[in-house]
Amino acid sequence: MDHPTSASRHGRLDSLLKHGESKLLVIVFSQVRVPAGKFGLERLFAKTRHNCLFLNDTGSDWYLGLEHAIDAALSAAMGEVSPERMIYYGSSMGGYGALLTGLRRQDGDTHAFGPELRLGRSGYQSTAYEIDANDQRLVDFKSLAETYSHELNLYFGCFDAVDAAGAIAANELLPKARRHLLRSTHANHDHLYSLNIIRRLIRTFERDPARELASKQLNCDITANDLRAFGDLGEALASDAVVDPADITELEAFQANPGLMRLAAETYARAGDLDKALETMEKAEALVESDPVLQGLPKRWRKQLPLQRVNWFFKAGQTEMARQLLTETLERFPADEAMLTLAKQLSLGSTASK
């Protein structure tokens, strides 16, 4: 059965309301790079019975300053579907939008995957989109959370330095939140989808996320000290500070965390120790490939590990090694623009076109 939809635009905010049969209204915030007229996660939620309000900040400005536009879209949607319950939902930039709006409005539960709680820091995606840490539109999450009475679920991938920092910030700013620390990356929503967790959660929004995550061995056993160190060291490396690889390799979580291994490999490379960099990155790859849960990590993250080794071989003048590894990588993962560029530089045009 087809359900009516209605679209509108408020400045840089696009919205689309899809009518459903349940009593839920799910407000779904798009991630970055979703073009105007399109909406993140639209196909996912199209398979549910829920009323869905899709929102997209077409300026990729982290939904800052869009309070009035969001409220107008919500008021119109609520007038049409009269929901009994509301859910704010999003990943990455969308996770920030969901968290920001859920805390501000305080009229529904929130599920935010990989939100950056402190925007504009070195190595953060928000910084790449020119969000400043001192932007006057930023809000005080801690004060908003003091009166928040709904369920707040935050999902962080412990293989990502920014997510690790977010998990620590959440503990300080949002102590009432349910923090889900995952054996995953920043793109943990995609990872959870591949393991059928997302579809089970969103079907009714009545399942316990912690129980679902535990059923797939996704919980990450990592100390607050290691999370904080990972976030700090990742930010330091992104700001071109000198990082001692030992500060990473001596962390308790290092041997079970391919994200920490990747960070250590990059510090070895910066220090000019190519052999150690290659060895450590290859160790991270082996860990991912040996674990059934980690094999479900998004391919766009997994392929960055061998591709970094290709680049290191290439820069070191070990062209044949670079060619061989890139050929193997192209056989395992879909080619993207960076891979095709590398292939051209290494004279692998015919292989890359397969």
Rank of each mutant, 00 (worst) to 15 (best):
F313S: 11
G166W: 01
D2N: 09
I202S: 01
L152K: 03
Q217T: 10
R211E: 11
E331V: 10
G79P: 05
N219C: 10
N311S: 07
S290F: 00
L260D: 02
D163Y: 07
A69G: 12
A177C: 09
I248S: 11
R228W: 11
L274I: 10
T127A: 15
H111F: 13
K299Y: 12
E337T: 14
I202R: 06
R270I: 01
L138M: 09
D14V: 01
A177P: 08
G94W: 01
E337D: 13
R300M: 09
K315E: 14
A238F: 03
R178P: 02
F205G: 13
S92Q: 04
D291S: 15
E285W: 06
I70L: 00
A335I: 06
N134Y: 08
H180V: 05
W62Q: 09
K18Q: 13
Q106M: 10
A128M: 10
K283I: 05
R105Y: 03
A264I: 04
S347K: 13
F230A: 12
R105K: 04
E42F: 06
A112H: 00
D275N: 13
A169P: 08
S353V: 06
N311H: 11
E146V: 11
S92R: 05
A343V: 13
L330T: 11
D160H: 06
N196G: 11
F54R: 00
W301V: 15
G166F: 07
G108F: 00
I131T: 11
V293C: 04
V28P: 04
E235G: 08
P83H: 13
N56P: 04
P306E: 02
D275H: 12
H189S: 15
F230E: 09
T280S: 01
Y96N: 14
R104M: 12
L24K: 12
D160K: 05
N51S: 14
R199F: 10
D107E: 09
L274H: 10
F313L: 05
R203T: 12
Q106N: 14
S15N: 03
Q345L: 09
L13Q: 01
S215T: 04
E289D: 15
L138A: 07
A286P: 03
D61T: 11
G59W: 08
D291Q: 05
A253P: 06
A269V: 03
L74Q: 15
A343L: 08
F205D: 08
H180N: 14
I202W: 01
R200P: 08
S91I: 05
Q308Y: 08
A165G: 12
A165C: 08
Y63T: 07
L99A: 04
A76L: 13
L16N: 13
G157L: 07
G65D: 11
R300C: 03
R309D: 15
D291A: 11
F156L: 09
A69Y: 02
R121S: 08
Q217Y: 03
I198D: 13
E206W: 03
L287P: 08
C158I: 00
F333K: 04
A164W: 08
L24Q: 04
L24G: 09
A72N: 14
L13D: 02
A7E: 13
P209R: 01
L218T: 15
A229H: 02
V139R: 04
A187L: 07
H3A: 12
N51T: 06
W301I: 15
A277R: 10
G11N: 02
R137T: 11
M1A: 15
S22N: 04
L218N: 09
G79L: 05
P292W: 00
S239Y: 07
M93D: 13
L173T: 13
F29L: 05
L182Y: 10
V32Y: 02
R309L: 05
V32T: 15
